[in-house]
Design a protein around this nucleic acid. Sequence first.
DNA 1: TATTGTTATACTCTATAACTATA
DNA 2: TATAGTTATAGAGTATAACAATA
Lengths: 151, 151
Amino acid sequence: MMPNRSHVLDRLLQIALLFQQDLARTFEGTPLTNSRVHLLWVVHQTGPATQASLAAALEVTPRNITGLVDALEASGYVERRPHPGDRRAVLVALTQLGEQTMAAMARDREQLATDLMAGMDDDRLIRLEDDLAGIAERLQHMIDAAGPARS
Amino acid sequence: MMPNRSHVLDRLLQIALLFQQDLARTFEGTPLTNSRVHLLWVVHQTGPATQASLAAALEVTPRNITGLVDALEASGYVERRPHPGDRRAVLVALTQLGEQTMAAMARDREQLATDLMAGMDDDRLIRLEDDLAGIAERLQHMIDAAGPARS
DNA sequence: TATTGTTATACTCTATAACTATA
DNA sequence: TATAGTTATAGAGTATAACAATA
């Protein structure tokens, strides 16, 4: 039987949806959302960051960051600190609650990865990672090429 | 080198984001959005459907469907028809514009799949599809198991 | 009594534009 | 003059609750 490339695409899209669903389930009962967690994750990975740099990282407008940080500050996940050396800017930093939450999320992700790929031997895993890397690279390249469609 | 399962997860998430980005680029300059296209796609696949069935398919509330159909009807992609045999319900059907748009999208998807997996031989493609199917299945199972978290 | 779709209301994410304070 | 962040305003997706018409 001829393998169908579209089916691979379908699977990738299906998995993407399921991931979102699974992630959202994790937040149930907290004030966290996809966007807020994304911001927390970036700060967790890079350390305290200005809102302008977060806007660039999340690819949204600075105004948007203001709203997300407001909500996260109100619920105690981050705090705004004065930027040493630039009095216009603030540094967004994780609080203890924010750090704990991100640490727990990192653990959950490890566990999820283990569960999802249980039973795959190393060869197969390497090949899978390689294939996905290739697809991601081509897709990124395609987007960049057609990219700055701002006419 | 030990392959890292988390990296595979990272790749899948990255690809999901890129897909969204690519899809959104397609709509530029039209009144279409992800949610609206999702609805159109379902109608395209299943034929004229009631709003209640669309709510189930998209996993959103019926109220939400009202808004999406309102917008799609106003911009000429769908029309509401009386349901023969149930005067409470309406049937949401694609207009000619809607059909054309979905046909074009199907073609684009085929092309994208071809481009993204260019150079993969049949064996590799089959194995990839198989791996992704396994991951999707496990993930779905996991969600179903923890699923009805409505306490 | 249950279902279909709508009105009413509210929250979140997102964007653009105008503005303040600083660089 | 340019940058960092905020206020003001608006559109889109989503949800719950109350309601009308129909089953």
